[in-house]
Structure formats: structure tokens, C-alpha cells
Computed example of a mutant assay.
Amino acid sequence: MTTGEERSALDDLRSLLASDLSGVEPDALYAGIRASELVFDSAQQWTGRLVAELRRREIPWSQIEAATEVPKSTLDRRAGRIE
């Protein structure tokens, strides 16, 4: 996903989730789910890049875990997604 696509997906999600979902057509809900999953995938990659940089600097896992309040197992998975 490009930065423009990410921005558009986030804007669409904000708008959709700010609305009364009971009146939203299923196709719009499907599109919202697709956008959410795209953003989620990108967010995992972003987290992985940041974690990888902290690890490259030899910052201990325990310090990263405490500072982010994210379990080490999650952080490790994210860092493993770096291509």
C-alpha cells in the first residue's frame, strides 16, 4: 500500500466508523473491512521496522517491551516481517 492509499484508507475508515453503522450498506462495510485490513498490515510492517532499528541499536527486548507496553512475542513477530 502506498502512502496515498494508506491515507485514503484511514480517512475512509474514520468517516465510516464515525457514522451510524446501522444505516450503512453491506458493500460499504465490506470496503471498510478491506481498508482496515490493509492499514493493519501496513501498521505491522511499520512497527517491525521501528523494532528492528531499536534492536540494531542493541536496546534490550525488556526495555522495548516496557517502553511500548507491547509483549515481546508481538514485537518479535513484527520485526520478523521486515523484508
Rank of each mutant, 00 (worst) to 15 (best):
V39M: 08
L54N: 06
A52Y: 00
S42T: 13
R55N: 03
E37G: 01
I59R: 09
A35M: 01
R14Q: 13
A66M: 14
R34M: 04
A79P: 02
G4M: 05
V70G: 00
F40H: 11
D27T: 13
W61Q: 08
D12L: 09
R57I: 01
R81K: 10
W61C: 08
A79F: 01
L29W: 02
D20F: 01
R49A: 14
W61N: 09
T3P: 06
A79I: 07
V24S: 09
Q63H: 06
I82R: 13
T68F: 00
I82F: 02
L38D: 09
R57A: 15
Y30L: 13
T68K: 00
T3D: 15
P26S: 11
E37F: 05
A52P: 03
E25F: 05
A67H: 07
W61L: 05
D11I: 11
R55M: 08
R34T: 08
S8N: 14
M1T: 12
S19C: 02
T2V: 07
Q44Y: 04
R78A: 15
L16R: 06
R81S: 10
A66D: 15
R55T: 05
R55E: 11
R77P: 00
D27G: 06
W46F: 10
A28M: 09
L50F: 03
G48A: 10
A9F: 11
G80F: 04
A9V: 01
R14D: 14
A9C: 11
K72A: 12
L17Y: 13
R14N: 12
T74L: 11
L21F: 10
D41H: 12
S73I: 14
A66H: 15
V39G: 05
A31D: 11
W61E: 10
L10S: 11
W61F: 07
R34Y: 03
L54H: 02
R14G: 09
E53Y: 02
R55I: 04
E83W: 03
G48W: 06
L50S: 06
T47I: 12
S36V: 01
L13H: 05
L75C: 06
I33E: 05
F40V: 05
E69Q: 15
P60H: 06
A66Q: 15
L21I: 10
E65G: 07
S42L: 12
E5G: 04
A52D: 12
S15L: 12
I64R: 03
R55Q: 14
S22P: 00
L75G: 01
A18K: 03
L17S: 05
G23V: 04
G32C: 04
R7Q: 12
K72E: 14
V39E: 01
I64Y: 03
W46K: 11
S8P: 00
P26Y: 03
P60M: 09
L21V: 13
M1Y: 02
S15I: 09
P71W: 02
E6L: 15
S73F: 06
Q44T: 04
A9E: 02
A79K: 07
A52I: 04
E58M: 07
E5M: 09
M1L: 06
P60K: 14
R34C: 03
P71M: 04
E58D: 15
Q45T: 12
D76M: 08
A79V: 11
S36N: 08
D20K: 11
Q63F: 05
R57S: 10
I64H: 01
E58T: 11
V51N: 07
L50C: 02
L16I: 07
L54P: 01
I64W: 01
G23N: 07
